[in-house]
Design a protein around this nucleic acid. Sequence first.
DNA 1: CGCCACCCTGTCCACCGGTCCAATATCCCG
DNA 2: CGGGATATTGGACCGGTGGACAGGGTGGCG
Lengths: 209, 209
Amino acid sequence: MHAICRHAEWVAPWRKAFPDGSLSASLEDAVGARAAADQLWLHAGGLDERDAGRLVARAVSAFPGVPIVVMSDAPAQAAALQALHGGARGYCHAQSHPDLLRQIALVVAHGGLWIGPELMQRVLGSVNARLDGQTAPTGNALSGLTPRERAVALEVAKGATNKEAARALEITERTVKAHLAAAFEKLGVRDRLELAIRVRDSAPVRSVA
Amino acid sequence: MHAICRHAEWVAPWRKAFPDGSLSASLEDAVGARAAADQLWLHAGGLDERDAGRLVARAVSAFPGVPIVVMSDAPAQAAALQALHGGARGYCHAQSHPDLLRQIALVVAHGGLWIGPELMQRVLGSVNARLDGQTAPTGNALSGLTPRERAVALEVAKGATNKEAARALEITERTVKAHLAAAFEKLGVRDRLELAIRVRDSAPVRSVA
DNA sequence: CGCCACCCTGTCCACCGGTCCAATATCCCG
DNA sequence: CGGGATATTGGACCGGTGGACAGGGTGGCG
């Protein structure tokens, strides 16, 4: 267990959690001291996201195979993502309770990934913000189509297969193909992909999370 | 500790890892039995990604607050993404060594997230693409792909067929298929239409502020 | 009543798209 | 040097897709 922090007092909880842990003032010092550790904890106090990400990347290459946990003074989701993307295995508040730090160490030591509970929620729930238009924004590429053709085109533009569109509209797959063929003809496209592109590019408003 | 699996022999390692764990044949059985568990392990053996994702989502709502771990017979990145997006806290091979399973349980029990080490980077890249529309200039849907996969994906996102993409990149149609299949897997999409949607929605340039 | 537009369905078939089984060559890294 | 990632290609397989050939039903309009 080794931590890197310019001033020892910045990571008081960590010292309390791991009394036997060693500490370096910088990554270079740790490398010079050949600090062999099972885990490396980085204090990224004043660094912005980008610098923190780079620091993590350097640490990863300097200590290959050693899991890295980043401690921030002001945790932010963007910073957490950068840190994890850089190769960190954990991200937490530098002033977390020693018990929590030990718990994080446990998770990371066993190959797990530690991200803040609020970030966890975003990760796990990100897909729930699915787009489900179902609106009727007239005046775009769909204006020349009949209502049913438009409905089918919208389903396809969401990525649906013929079978799925059929189920969604409660009609036969054959009928979907008929409406689709008509839409192809009217819009001058050759397949569902071009239709989807046409529809989505001409959509007046987009409700993306 | 509770597992859901149609046939007990499919999850022999799990039974060895948790001799005291209970087991149900289906999610409905588990609900009916009011199986109160600290963790719920789902065997998603023969299910495809989508059904597995839905199963996880149902399990999450049926057992709110209970961490879910998905065991797959043939782990794939796309399936892992679907499972995690559905709310799973872990994803692993159903035939993993009991020691590894116990390790995973430990991580999950302490609030961690378990994904295969090789999957970690990609998942984070995908999460990156989903979460930030303004912070990271780099990191759209293409970020996790290799240069050639990215090139093929861009051609397809423009509406090109395999043959056209092949001609544009001066490679065989067969190779286009290979790169596309890899891109599908990494992005967690099933066909070129969903890939095009994903790519175009995460494009760096957006007309709306 | 005919005509027409729209909606729905059926069958047959060629082609494309996606996946599974490979193999080969290069390059970089530990 | 061996292992891993990347790029490239081959063949076979099969389901989805799109086009072509059909129809039948409804409602409006001259």
